[in-house]
Simulated scan of single mutants.
Amino acid sequence: MQSMRNFFRPSWSSPQRLDGKTVVITGANTGIGKEAAIDLAKRGARVIMACRDMERGQAALKEVVESSANENVACMKLDLSDTKSIREFADNINKGEEKLNILLNNAGVMVCPYGKTADGFEMQIGVNHMGHFLLTYLLLDLIKKSAPARIINVSSVAHRFGSINLEDINSEKSYDKNGAYAQSKLANVLFTRSLAKRLEGTGVTAYSLHPGVVQTDLCRHLNGPQKFVMKVISPFTKSSTQGAQTSIYCAVEPSLDKESGGYYSDCAPAKCSAKAQDDDMAQRLWELSCGMLSITWE
């Protein structure tokens, strides 16, 4: 019912400016990431597009600059499936940027065939959760220094179908691509909850969100029946521009200054699953992630 109510809610918009603010968006060369980059650049922000494919990234950069009439946009290499690339990217940001006011962890892979990242993580948990977990950790000092600041994790309603398998987080014993995707999206919400608690009193807030069912490149790994369903429901799905709105809302909406750790959909607070509110599991996932990434993050 929530989604039906939200469907009839007037669309959100805000004149909020971001002059003098710096934004990093992962996966900004396509889909909702690119649309968010255009919108935040129009608001006057310095936007850094973190992209795996630099050729596509440069083409998207040109489009963002032209659409926003803002020249202060950069494209930098970031491969979330490789911790070496994540560390290099974060190092470049920490050395080259004076501040980081908004980190939009947007990039993701969805229901892909079984594969592993450079560090041996299952691809979906590796990119969608571990990559962004490490990136946030490495940029956190700069983000805190830039407070008030926001960290936004793009999750999905698919988190409702997920469960965290701590004993087999990399799906080595058995792999279900839909289950692994749902697990990674549940991890995004749990990460956000834990992060918000740890950031209390710092001036940095954290949010997770469901962008809506969006027709993007992410759908390329869907099987025949899933593609058919997407075709049938396509009149009710969102364009990339519409899909980016909740990310933008979490980035700029002034009323969220006092909120942190929540889950949003259709530019409004939404209810996440009971599993996504399990603070014990959130803590265990946090500890496991730190161990697998060889980091100490209290």
Rank of each mutant, 00 (worst) to 15 (best):
Q2Y: 13
S3V: 15
R5W: 15
R9I: 06
L18Q: 10
V23S: 10
T30R: 10
A37C: 05
R46Y: 05
V47F: 13
M49C: 01
C51G: 12
M54Q: 07
R56H: 12
A59I: 13
N70H: 06
L80W: 10
S81D: 04
T83R: 14
T83A: 15
R87T: 15
K95M: 08
E97V: 07
N106Q: 02
A107L: 00
V109G: 01
C112F: 06
G115L: 00
G126T: 01
T136E: 03
Y137E: 10
A149W: 09
S163I: 05
S163H: 09
N165A: 13
E167D: 13
D168W: 06
D168V: 02
N170Q: 12
E172D: 10
E172M: 00
D176V: 13
N188C: 07
F191K: 08
S194N: 13
T216M: 05
T216N: 07
N223A: 08
G224L: 13
Q226H: 06
M230R: 00
V232S: 05
I233K: 05
F236I: 10
S239F: 06
A244Y: 11
A270V: 02
A274T: 11
A276F: 05
D279S: 07
R284T: 04
E287P: 11
G291R: 12
G291M: 09
